[in-house]
Amino acid sequence: MKILLTGGGTGGHIYPALAIGKYMQQQDSATELLYIGTERGMESKIVRRANVPFESIEITGFKRKLSYDNVRTVIRFLRGVNRSKQLIKQFKPDVVIGTGGYVCGPVVYAAARLGIPTFIHEQNAIPGLTNKFLTSFVSHVGVSFEDSLSYFAKAKQVSFTGNPCASQVIEAIPGRGRASLDLESNQRYALIVGGSRGAKALNQAVIALAREQEQLEKLSQYRIVFATGEIYYDDTLQALKDNAAYRNGQIMLLPYINNMAEVLSDASIVISRSGASSLAEINALGKPSILIPSPNVTNNHQEANARSLESVGAAEIILESELSGTHLLEKLSALLLDDHKLAKMSAASQFLAVPDSASRIALALARIMKR
């Protein structure tokens, strides 16, 4: 089988595509993959690092306001469609899978026009512009949140699949996360991560949190593992180098976590943005969480994602406008010092999990390829 993958811009679009590809290769080792993205997007590095063949097209996203730039975008889109058709005819895929981001627009559209089975996956509670555009053309739509089904009423087929990233993290072996952090086998820790690129507001809050020495001493049995994001690491390290909690090891700084599934698996609680793939991983592992939705996303979809967890008691939310070191530490302390509350949140998180997401997607792909 040959599978063409596309999606980009953020890790939230890229990792689900790679998760689907990996799962399909696990089912059939003869499966060939090709990924189409842009050279400027994160996918150019992430996909190549995953040893998946990569080709690129040039495309930019539409502005939501009337702009001459949109005329250029239409021209790039048409060129992207032509380039995609060339790559598709060369690779001859059995199915084309798009996971969002503007790059998948011309690729999936081109495949649909060529009569190739197409599947798009929507990770967020509120669909992105590209997936909305593609709805009428594709063979099947998969969604991560059941509440999203209504957005795709015009689709030929649509199903609740969950997020394929969930299927990967459940394979994490307990204890390896602690070992990779050089922690004792029984050491408990809170994991703070601001997404694949980091989050400036969260970094500033953690720097402020580190100054709350009296409150931190009440959490002496916990470590705080903070992935700053590579672009914020040096500044954060400089700000904390003389801080007592950092110097005594209670706060651990990392620029990036390559074995996220393992580190996430061993965490007692997770503080993060609320990108859909992150939430899928959190739920798959049944982790309590404090979510800080990014306000800088289309349709404020991260808050919608986070509210879906909050509504069942799986997470608590701090809006970025309310975020401070003191507020974050107060909420974190209240949860870490209440094992009963953590257990209830963990059970609620597991309730939302869709651990067989990848197999659901594989079933949908099998159906559209038989037509």
Rank of each mutant, 00 (worst) to 15 (best):
K2D: 04
L4F: 01
G12L: 07
I14V: 15
Y15N: 04
I20T: 06
G21D: 05
Y23M: 02
Q26A: 12
Q27P: 01
Q27V: 01
A30E: 14
T31G: 02
G37H: 06
G37Y: 07
R40L: 06
E43M: 12
R48Q: 15
R49P: 00
N51S: 15
N51V: 10
N51R: 15
P53M: 13
E55M: 13
E58T: 14
I59S: 05
G61A: 13
F62G: 07
R64K: 15
L66I: 15
L66Y: 08
L66C: 03
S67T: 12
S67G: 09
S67I: 09
D69N: 14
V71Q: 04
R72E: 08
R76V: 01
R76Q: 15
F77K: 01
S84I: 04
K85Y: 00
Q86R: 13
I88K: 06
K89D: 11
K92V: 08
P93T: 08
V95C: 12
V96D: 11
G98P: 12
T99H: 12
G100F: 07
Y102M: 06
C104F: 07
A110D: 08
A112M: 03
I116N: 04
I120W: 08
E122T: 09
E122W: 10
E122D: 10
Q123S: 14
I126T: 12
K132R: 15
F137C: 10
S144W: 14
D147A: 15
L149F: 12
Y151I: 04
Y151C: 10
K154E: 14
A155T: 07
K156G: 02
F160Q: 09
N163G: 05
N163Y: 11
A166W: 02
S167I: 05
Q168G: 00
I170S: 02
E171G: 00
I173Q: 13
I173E: 14
P174L: 09
R176P: 00
S180W: 03
D182S: 15
D182E: 14
E184F: 03
S185H: 11
S185V: 11
L191G: 08
V193R: 02
V193N: 01
R197Q: 15
G198F: 15
K200V: 12
A201H: 13
Q204G: 02
A205N: 11
R211M: 04
Q213C: 00
E217K: 13
K218D: 01
L219C: 03
Q221F: 00
R223C: 05
I224E: 02
T228G: 03
E230P: 01
E230F: 01
Y233T: 06
Y233Q: 08
Y233G: 12
L237M: 11
Q238D: 11
K241Q: 15
G249T: 11
G249Y: 09
Q250P: 10
P255N: 05
N258Y: 07
V263A: 10
D266V: 06
A267V: 01
A267R: 01
I269E: 02
G275N: 03
A276D: 03
S278V: 13
E281A: 07
K287Q: 05
L291A: 07
I292R: 06
P293A: 10
V297T: 14
N305A: 06
A306R: 01
A314L: 04
I318H: 03
L319F: 10
L323T: 05
T326G: 11
L329H: 08
E330M: 07
A334I: 01
L335E: 03
L336G: 09
D339T: 08
A347M: 10
S349G: 14
L352Y: 01
S359G: 00
M369P: 00
K370R: 12
K370A: 11
